[in-house]
Computed example of a mutant assay.
Amino acid sequence: MPLDQPVKIFIVDDEALARERLRTLLGDLAPLYPHVVVGEAASGQAALDSLRELAVDVVLCDIRMPGMDGIELALHLTRLPRPPAVIFTTAYDNFAVQAFELNALDYLMKPVRLQRLLVALQKLPGPGVDGEQLAALGQSLRGGGRSHLSCHERGRLLLVPVSEVLYLRADLKYVMARTLEREYLLDDSLAQLEQEFPDRFLRLHRAVLVAREALAGFEKASGDDVEAYGWALLRGLPEKLPISRRQWAAAKAAGAAGNA
């Protein structure tokens, strides 16, 4: 990468000592590699809050962190207008191998060494991270789906806590996520979300997934109702969701299990 301008670097690690070590190493590299550390964060969520407003060239990102881990953070970063390159840092060999397979710019084993950090930075620009592979790897490593969904609204990337989503509904090219407060349009497909969160969301209809804990009851549709075989009632919302004939038995069974 031409170094006519300093490379903008952002550090993400939940351990203060790890962030300090990276800052020290980067300081030692300054004569060889012009750069500026423009910020740091102790969590994926805090990092994304900053990086939505701050354009950077590369993120040095720990993989295993409480809450939003590094894999999920990297996935959300791919949806920024100008995604930064990602260099993963990790203390776990198996994470490193899998991270490298994602086409991340590079990965660094902890404790990070000076020469190895320089080699990684010199790869800029590098290949983009594969979003689908990131999602699959993250699900495997953490044993479940993301903590947040993301959507673009008025030029900004917003995060939607999965725990607050009551249902998901396909709407033309988008999927609408409904919380108690409002609706969000997502870029994910309904099929992807169903696969990522099988324990949280239940399919009611070819176009609808509902959070199992949001189910409050059921109604059989009238005989002349062409939209649905039945209806799901929701906790906290007046609206009803359609249930297809195929999904009716499974939905009622899931509702009964949830209320047991």
Rank of each mutant, 00 (worst) to 15 (best):
P2C: 07
L3D: 09
I9N: 06
F10W: 10
D14Q: 05
E15Q: 15
A18D: 03
R23K: 12
D28K: 14
G39M: 14
E40A: 14
Q45V: 01
Q45Y: 03
Q45I: 00
A46D: 11
L48W: 04
L48C: 12
D49H: 07
L51F: 02
D57E: 04
V58S: 13
V58A: 04
L60A: 06
C61R: 01
M65T: 04
G70E: 00
A74P: 03
L75D: 01
L75K: 01
T78F: 07
P83H: 10
T90P: 07
T90K: 04
A91T: 05
A91C: 07
N94Y: 10
V97I: 15
E101D: 15
L102N: 04
A104T: 06
A104Q: 00
L105C: 08
L124W: 10
D130R: 07
D130A: 12
G131E: 15
G131K: 09
A136Y: 03
G138R: 01
L141G: 00
G144K: 01
H152N: 10
L158I: 03
S163H: 11
S163G: 11
S163T: 14
V165T: 10
L168M: 12
A170G: 08
D171Y: 06
V175M: 13
V175T: 15
M176I: 14
A177F: 08
Y184W: 08
S189Y: 10
R200H: 12
H205W: 12
L209S: 07
L209M: 04
A221S: 15
E227D: 14
G230S: 12
G230T: 07
R235V: 05
L237N: 03
L237C: 06
P238L: 03
K240H: 08
P242H: 09
S244E: 02
S244L: 09
G255T: 05
G258H: 14
N259S: 13
